[in-house]
Design a binder for these strands. Structure first.
Lengths: 123, 123
DNA sequence: CTTGACCTTGACGCCGGCGGCAAGGTCGCA
DNA sequence: TGCGACCTTGCCGCCGGCGTCAAGGTCAAG
């Protein structure tokens, strides 16, 4: 399939796909005329990429998960290094989530206190 | 007080303060030599601004809270609009956190499966 | 043969919240 | 009188994930 088809099938744009390729997240072969040609499974891969992006990860983050992006769990088990990196990522994600949750709670508290008081007890 | 003092008192930088002024969040008078001069209460205001920023709002969002940023009880309570913006932000933050938590959980599950199944890592 | 839909690379634009540098003016103090 | 700390405006840079031209090549249909 060509880039336009893939884009539509995966719910994104050709531009984004070139961007992912440039970032090393997907790969393509080339037809004689230079057009990019993709395999069917790339659709799944791209969907997974977009899922992770939507979850707030960066392209850099996503790269770490490449081995698991094709949805085939039995396929390529990650290397020890991959596992280590993945665990580190997990910690990073936890930290990030914690930070955002904290911010969220602050906002909620502010809102709650607004029911009467001022925006926040200011020191 | 001058910009440097305000910056230190409010826990930020002179650069950021000029940025806030440029964004219409704070105002200053000018001394004869052109230096910005601030009132004491601006410290509180800036702290509140930074508090809201840290809670995940944008400068644009903060603008709607201007009437209540001085911590003055007599001042106007946050407008209905302000509350609405804050609630919307809260929803956005919640969604973002949920998505990331979901991704995190996926990763954890994947990790668990790998380490349980295949002990031998592949280079 | 032409149109028009599709593809190619390359490069600049944008948003947000500043950081940081340039190039200069203004102080107080020794 | 000269140093150094402070201030001024202005503008470019950065990160991330693309959007959006620009300037072309390719191909099937009419």
């Amino acid at each position: 399939m060509r880039i336009g088809e893939l884009a539509e099938a995966a719910g994104t744009t050709a531009r984004a796909l070139r961007h992912y390729e440039q970032a090393g997240l997907i790969s393509s072969e080339r037809a004689a005329n230079g057009y990019r040609v993709y395999e069917e499974r790339t659709v799944v891969r791209v969907r997974n990429i977009r899922y992770l992006l939507a979850a707030g990860l960066t392209l850099d983050d996503v790269r770490v998960f490449l081995p698991c992006l094709d949805g085939d769990v039995a396929a390529a088990p990650p290397s020890a290094k991959g596992l280590r990196v993945a665990r580190e990522r997990l910690a990073v994600l936890d930290a990030r989530i914690a930070a955002q949750t904290e911010a969220r709670d602050r906002l909620e508290v502010a809102l709650r206190e607004r029911t009467g008081d001022r925006i926040r007890p200011v020191a």
